[in-house]
Design a protein around this nucleic acid. Structure first.
Length: 412
RNA sequence: GCGCAGGUGGCAGAGCGGUCAAUUGCAUUAGACUGUAAAUCUAACGCCCAUGUGGCUACGGGGGUUCGAAUCCCUCCCUGCGCACCA
């Protein structure tokens, strides 16, 4: 009984730790600045303060957001301190990294609400209880004119407009507002205030992260190290995963949706998804279909449960490979059937009304769907928009490939 | 403040008095093919009545000219550029 203290055990532990650090610094990492310094810091055994910032603009997290969260979790597992910055102040500015979308200032209530949802979801990845959660309004609202001026004296305009998207907008004659120009400085100031040893973020954040280093240096602090992580493409395989492109997999998606969306990614993305979104490795020389099934199952398991993942997999195969009707179907509640319906048990309804009830946005759209043979009721394709249906309840309405409804009659 | 150039459908971007519900590309939707892959092909893509050389609403907001305006005029708002200003 060595209690893990003998030479052999200690050595093995050390080796394992080095392996973990190696993994930390390589898996799914785009760039580290500076690698040397960070590596030494990690090996020194010092507990690092690892900063990760989020804007509380939207309450929902998608898989793209989990990339840095997973990295953060790795740090937590090695005993480092995760410092989660909630950008309630900066959210009002809006990080201009994407488009020049204007943002309404969020109320305190909205921020609180968004964050509750956010943290609940983030909690599936990192240990929120052990993390330090800070709102940046705590210090940014205290920057009065004088303090702000002092801070801004440390950074030049030229440095700021080096940022690519700023440059681009200037060249293309698009509007660039002062507060957007200041965004990186505010984010950098966060690092100063919480004394970050390391900040992680997507590769689109590189400029902001580096501004953190600059600012810290000018304030005679040790500059934070930074790790940038690749941006992950969305389910379309082309553009980065984002709500505005509607190519995202939400953490809150149902197991079936999640599974289906993951199966729809292009093959070329399978390995990247494994590396960035899971802790597993892609199977060796498996065919893409099998690899994708495993990927989908692994991810659903992470955010739901092994059982639900298993079910989702079966359901997927059932519906799409075997073209059968899914087990779980949304009920489509129909009330007020035409009174002249002949059947006492059911009633009569036009197909158009039925489609509208099923969230088809307009009658024109409904006609189009019918004309293109996309509408099936109990496996029978309906074309004529004037079709009157005798409904008894329990019929299966299928629109396109993905929309299934089970009709349920509601009596008044 | 002055001058110039702009503001068109989810985005990009044509159109510059009638044939414009508005070319085209991207995105989207549906169908074919598949591993619900990807790629490809086909079609649709403002709304309403659906019989039509149909009706309604739309080209930053408001007003006007005209038989007729996304297109011309006035005005307001917004964006970019130049000039002026620059403690």
């Amino acid at each position: 009984m060595c209690g893990g203290l003998c030479y052999n055990c200690t050595y093995m532990k050390l080796e394992r730790k080095e392996g973990q650090i190696e993994q930390l610094l390589t898996r799914g990492v785009e760039e580290i600045i500076t690698l040397e310094h960070l590596k030494n810091a990690l090996l020194s055994g010092k507990k690092l303060r690892v900063k990760f910032g989020i804007d509380p603009t939207k309450p929902d997290i998608h898989l793209g957001h989990t990339v840095p969260l997973l990295k953060l979790r790795e740090f937590q597992k090695l005993g480092h301190k995760a410092v989660l910055i909630i950008g309630d102040f900066t959210a009002q500015i809006g990080d201009p990294s994407g488009q020049s979308a204007e943002r309404k200032p969020l109320t305190k209530k909205e921020v609180k609400m968004n964050m509750r949802h956010y943290l609940a979801q983030a909690g599936k990845v990192i240990d929120v209880k052990r993390a330090e959660v800070r709102y940046n309004s705590e210090w940014l609202t205290k920057l009065d004119g004088q303090k702000l001026t002092k801070l801004l004296m440390l950074i030049s305009v030229q440095q700021m407009i080096e940022r690519n998207d700023f440059k681009e907008r200037i060249e293309k004659g698009k509007s660039l507002r002062m507060q957007e120009l200041l965004y990186p400085v505010f984010q950098a100031y966060d690092s100063v205030m919480i004394k970050a040893d390391l900040e992680i973020g997507g590769s689109d954040q590189k400029f902001n992260l580096l501004t953190g280093r600059t600012l810290m240096e000018r304030l005679r602090m040790k500059p934070q190290d930074i790790i940038t992580l690749p941006l992950i493409e969305g389910t379309d395989g082309v553009r980065k995963m984002s709500k505005s492109y509607d190519n995202y997999v939400a953490m809150n998606d149902t197991p079936n949706d999640m599974f289906g969306k993951l199966m729809r990614i292009p093959d070329s993305l399978i390995n990247k998804y494994f590396e960035l979104l899971t802790e597993a490795n892609p199977p060796n020389n498996a065919n893409p279909y099998a690899a994708k099934l495993l990927l989908a199952e692994t991810i659903v398991e992470m955010y739901h449960s092994p059982l639900l993942a298993q079910k989702a997999r079966e359901e997927f195969k059932r519906v799409f490979s075997k073209k059968e009707t899914p087990y779980d179907i949304t009920d489509l509640r129909i009330r007020n059937l035409c009174p002249f319906g002949t059947s006492p048990a059911g009633g009569e309804l036009g197909i158009m009304e039925l489609l509208l009830a099923a969230n088809v946005p307009s009658k024109s759209e409904a006609r189009r769907l019918l004309a293109q043979g996309a509408v099936k009721l109990n496996e029978k394709t309906l074309i004529d928009p004037d079709t009157m249906l005798i409904l008894k309840g329990g019929e299966i309405l299928k629109i396109g490939k993905h929309r299934f409804f089970k009709i349920r009659l509601i009596r008044n």
